[in-house]
C-alpha cells in the first residue's frame, strides 16, 4: 500500500524526516508514535502529497506521489480518507451536509449520497444525528462525524493525525474502536498519536519516530 525509499524531507536546513525504508501493507493498522516534532505529521503529509520529499520516493498504491502531476493529486486523495485532530467540521452545516459535501462535489447522485452518508453515520454510531449542527455535539461526536466524512467515499487508506488529541480517555477509546472497525472492513488505517494508553491497548504495529528517523518498528507493539 505504502512504501518509502530513502525519503528525506527538509524544511530549510532542518531535517524533518529521514526514512531509508518503510513498507505498510494493504489492510494493516499502524500507529505512528513519537514526541511532538518527531516527524509523524510530515510522514503523513508526504503520503497524501501535501508535502513533496526533498529526496527519495513515496509510493502510494504503487504510484510515486512525488512524481505525480499536480492535476492527479485529487484522484489520489479520493482513494484516501483523512481525519484531523481539530475535526475540521463546517459549523454552519448540519452533520449530514458535513459528511455529504465532499461526495456531492464528486458528482454522486442524491440517492447515492443519502445511502452513503446514512451508512457512514451508522458505522460511527451517529445514525440519529444527521440534522444536528456540530455545535450541538460533544467533542467525541464531532470526531465521529469527521471519521464518517473520511470513510463516506469508501477509501482504501485512512490517515488520522492525532484523532484523539482533543478528547478525554474514554471518548478516545471509543474513537479508536471505530477506527478498528473501519480497518476490519478492509481499509488500511494509519494513526499518528502520542497516547500511550491507546497504543498499548490495541496491540497493533507501532512505528516509533525520533527526530525524523524510524527508531523502532514492531508488530503488536506497545508505546516506547
Amino acid at each position: 500500500m505504502i512504501r518509502l525509499k530513502n525519503t528525506v524531507k527538509k524544511y530549510g536546513i532542518q531535517r524533518a524526516l529521514d526514512c531509508s525504508n518503510l513498507h505498510i501493507k494493504v489492510g494493516e493498522f499502524v500507529f505512528l508514535v513519537g514526541a511532538s516534532g518527531a516527524g509523524k505529521s510530515t510522514l503523513m503529509r508526504l503520503m497524501y502529497r501535501e508535502e513533496l520529499p526533498t529526496r527519495g520516493q513515496v509510493f502510494v498504491g504503487g504510484v510515486d506521489v512525488a512524481k505525480m502531476h499536480p492535476s492527479k493529486v485529487p484522484h489520489l486523495r479520493r482513494r484516501m480518507g483523512i481525519v484531523f485532530q481539530d475535526f475540521k467540521l463546517l459549523c454552519d452545516h448540519n452533520v449530514f451536509d458535513n459528511v455529504a459535501f465532499v461526495i456531492r462535489a464528486l458528482g454522486m447522485s442524491s440517492r447515492e449520497i443519502k445511502k452513503r452518508v446514512r451508512g457512514a453515520l451508522k458505522i460511527v454510531g451517529l445514525p440519529d444525528k444527521a440534522d444536528a449542527l456540530p455545535t450541538q455535539l460533544s467533542g467525541g461526536e464531532q470526531q465521529r462525524v469527521g471519521i464518517a466524512r473520511a470513510i463516506v467515499n469508501g477509501p482504501s487508506l485512512l490517515i488520522a493525525d492525532e484523532p484523539t488529541g482533543n478528547l478525554d480517555p474514554q471518548t478516545s477509546m471509543e474513537i479508536m474502536d471505530i477506527l478498528e472497525q473501519v480497518n476490519k472492513r478492509g481499509t488500511t488505517v494509519i494513526v499518528a498519536t502520542h497516547d500511550q494508553i491507546i497504543v498499548d491497548h490495541f496491540k497493533k504495529r507501532v512505528i516509533t519516530l525520533e527526530q525524523g528517523r524510524i527508531i523502532k518498528d514492531i508488530n503488536a507493539g506497545t508505546y516506547g
Binding site: 497524501y48 501535501e50 492535476s71 493529486v73 485529487p74 484522484h75 489520489l76 486523495r77 479520493r78 482513494r79 484516501m80 480518507g81 483523512i82 475540521k88 463546517l90 459535501f101 465532499v102 462535489a105 464528486l106 466524512r149 473520511a150 467515499n153
Partner: peptide, 16 residues
C-alpha cells in the same frame, strides 16, 4: 477557507 481546505484534502477537483 476551511471548506476549501477540507475539499482539497478529500480530493475534490480544482475545477469544482
Amino acid at each position: 477557507k476551511k471548506e476549501i481546505e477540507i475539499m482539497r484534502m478529500m480530493g475534490v477537483s480544482d475545477w469544482y
